[in-house]
């Protein structure tokens, strides 16, 4: 009820030149926003889609791999491991403005500790978040830093669900660690992998708040979400145009998410 109606309204606004300020006319204009987007497709929207896809693929692949690695290391039972897991999960429970502010401070090239470390230890100078070359990767890293804990927990649940007999059978066969992982653990983790990959990629495709706080979408980090936000809100903004981008974003998510889910499910079955 509180999710659907406002979403439908967004869909409707995408066909208007509505400013978003209450009390102003809606200016229904049909497909004008979509037409405008098509005419500037190459420079604007397509660029944002490409950045979004790069971001989502990078985050999904690395975060899933790291989460699995962490799960294998920290899956053991025991109080100390409970504690380690809590630490790893910690970044995930902080809100975006806090994390964003924190990393702006850490990565400030003049007054931040990371800049100082790189200067003193390696003699490297970098603008970090202000560098068109590495900015997107840094934001990916921060996103992964925040999300790893979730992924790890999903994989640990998956690992716990693997019956002990499977491993026993493998050790009887004299399989080494790697082969056990390759032939037993990995295939049996398929459901956990599905959940992890799907949730991570969906969240990454929609990401904008963190980017907004860290770079405002500058230095090659303008994802579709950021583009939507900056178009919809601001002094000269139009909610109508922003809504159109939100709809494009939604269909992109639906397309990729649906495809991914199908592929992952099929993989679960064949494995």
């Amino acid at each position: 009820m509180f999710g659907l109606y406002p979403s439908v309204a967004t869909f409707f606004y995408s066909f208007t030149q509505y400013s978003g300020v209450p009390g102003t006319p809606l200016n229904v204009c049909g497909l004008c926003n979509y037409a405008a987007a098509t005419s500037s497709l190459l420079s604007n929207v397509a660029g944002a889609i490409w950045t979004t896809v790069k971001f989502a693929v990078g985050v999904t692949v690395v975060q899933t791999a790291l989460s699995l690695g962490l799960a294998l290391i920290f899956q053991r039972r025991g109080r100390s491991f409970t504690f380690y897991r809590a630490i790893i999960f910690l970044p995930g429970i902080l809100s975006v403005p806090i994390v964003g502010g924190m990393f702006s401070l850490l990565l400030d090239p003049v007054s931040g500790p990371v800049g100082e470390l790189f200067r003193n230890a390696f003699g490297i100078e970098s603008a970090f978040l202000g560098s068109g070359r590495i900015s997107l990767f840094l934001i990916m890293g921060i996103t992964i830093w925040m999300g790893c804990g979730y992924g790890m927990i999903i994989f640990i649940a998956g690992l716990r669900a693997i019956p002990r007999e499977s491993y026993e059978a493998a050790s009887v066969d004299g399989a080494g660690r790697f082969r056990t992982f390759r032939h037993i653990t990995w295939p049996l983790l398929a459901p956990a992998t599905t959940v992890c990959v799907f949730l991570t990629s969906m969240a990454a495709l929609g990401e904008f708040a963190l980017v907004l706080v860290l770079t405002e979408g500058n230095f090659g980090t303008k994802t579709l979400g950021v583009y939507m936000f900056t178009s919809a809100f601001g002094t000269s903004s139009q909610l109508g145009y922003g809504s159109m981008i939100a709809i494009v974003q939604f269909f992109l998510t639906l397309l990729i998410g649906g495809g991914l889910l199908l592929a992952l499910r099929r993989r679960e079955v064949t494995l």
Binding site: P6, S7, T10, G20, F250, T253, L254
Partner: peptide, 17 residues
């Protein structure tokens, strides 16, 4: 699950509330 990824119009939500 997918509706979670639909953008939520803040002002329509507000007017509803």
């Amino acid at each position: 699950v997918f509706s979670g990824f639909l953008p939520v119009g803040l002002i329509p939500l507000f007017i509803e509330a």
